[in-house]
Amino acid sequence: MAEGPAVPPVPPAGFETGVPVSLDAMAEAIAAFDFERPTAEALARISTLRLVLPPALSVAGLDPLSDAYRERMLAIYAHVRFGGEGAARRYDPAVDELTGREVGNAFTELSPWSIDGSALMAEHFYAWGHVLKVLDVRRRDSVLEYGPGGGGLLLALARLGVAACGVDIDATWLGHIEAQARAMGITVRTEPNRFGRGFDGERFDRIVFYEAFHHAFDFMAVLAEVRAKLKPGGFVVFCGEPVVGHAVDFLPYPWGLRLDGDAVRCIRRHGWMELGFTRDFFVRALGTAGFDVEMIPFPGCGRADIYKATPPA
């Protein structure tokens, strides 16, 4: 679930080498951001900012799958969210991934429909279309989406006659999806739960993460749980995730908190975990969890790139 995009809508010139700023300067930029009706241009502009971390928070030399690395990343989260205060406060998805956001019209006031800009909306259509093509499902096939956000993709699957299920830790957002489904005369099943869990005892033909997996701090455990929820021959699709080709200034490590202004605003305002991954590490993580991986790019739109993860036969 994400109110803002996982990656900037149209990466501006110099996106990978943005403007380095202190945490105080970043907080000022976030305070000036229009949260009620954000524009694609404002999102691209704030995304050019890069938070500079203190040297003490470096993860250099640590194994990215080690407990020490994870603890250092939690310290970076505390620094970004609390500005050096409240370091004893631990990230807790049951608290920090909630918004409880009520809206008057779920069809127009939820992301991505709430963002002002048709070019940005087009990117989501590209991505949803690419996901539907790769899923290749028929009526009565089952699809479980984790973190369905405003429900755009999940509702499209339900309209196709697919058994569409959604899991999100925020029951309020699931309620918005159910309200849309009732108005459209279609059926979706939802359950408030953490990633990797929900719909106990059921297995699915396909599982989808769209702009959602980057909220999973314990992502290796999530991958193991997700693998167990697949039917034989099933696979997992990851799309819209912030996976970059190599370490860059807003992601100067194999995986961890993204330091661009858009990610920092989500951490500061909501408390969300906003991770990013280098491609090599993401593929390594999926392989370690027991998946064969295929990367399926979408020319001209990084948001629509797909990683297809399939357990070996």
Rank of each mutant, 00 (worst) to 15 (best):
A25H: 08
S47W: 00
A304K: 04
R140I: 00
P254T: 06
P192L: 02
Y91D: 03
A171G: 07
E241P: 12
G256W: 08
H270C: 03
E102P: 01
G150Y: 03
P112N: 01
P5Q: 05
D260A: 03
I115E: 01
A228C: 05
V293C: 14
A179Y: 00
A68L: 01
V222C: 15
A164C: 15
I46K: 11
E202F: 04
G300E: 01
T17Q: 08
H270K: 09
R227M: 04
V19Y: 05
G117D: 02
L23M: 09
E274M: 15
V167D: 10
E71H: 11
R227F: 02
A29Q: 13
G4Q: 05
R81H: 13
F219T: 04
T172R: 07
A313Y: 03
L57R: 09
R203E: 02
F35D: 12
L51S: 10
W113V: 09
T278E: 12
Y69I: 13
I296D: 09
V19S: 05
I207G: 12
P252L: 06
A119M: 01
D96S: 10
G185T: 06
E16C: 01
A44H: 11
G150P: 11
F213H: 15
D262P: 00
R182I: 01
V143F: 04
A87Y: 06
W128H: 15
R159H: 02
G104P: 05
G271T: 12
I76F: 00
R182M: 07
F219N: 03
D260T: 05
A171Y: 07
D249G: 06
G18P: 08
E97I: 10
D249C: 07
A289F: 06
E178N: 03
R89Y: 04
E41S: 14
W272H: 14
F204C: 10
V222D: 15
F33E: 14
F235G: 11
T172K: 09
R81Y: 11
A44N: 15
G151T: 05
G117Y: 02
G18W: 09
F209D: 13
G86T: 10
D34P: 14
V293W: 14
P93N: 07
S58Y: 06
F282Q: 07
L230Y: 13
R182C: 08
D305M: 05
D96Y: 06
F238N: 15
D260L: 02
G233M: 11
G276F: 06
M184G: 01
R89L: 11
R284I: 00
V248F: 07
F238C: 15
G175K: 03
D34G: 13
M220T: 10
P297A: 04
S111V: 01
D170P: 04
A228Y: 01
D116A: 08
G198T: 09
G149Q: 02
G271A: 09
G234R: 03
F35V: 08
G300I: 00
T17E: 06
S58A: 13
A171P: 15
P242F: 00
A127W: 00
G129D: 09
S47D: 13
P148H: 12
R279Y: 07
F281C: 07
A221L: 11
D24Q: 12
D92N: 08
P93R: 06
A158F: 13
P20D: 00
E211K: 05
G166W: 03
G161N: 09
D67E: 14
M184S: 01
P311H: 01
D262V: 05
D24P: 07
A25S: 14
M273D: 06
C165Q: 08
E97Y: 08
A87C: 11
G198Q: 12
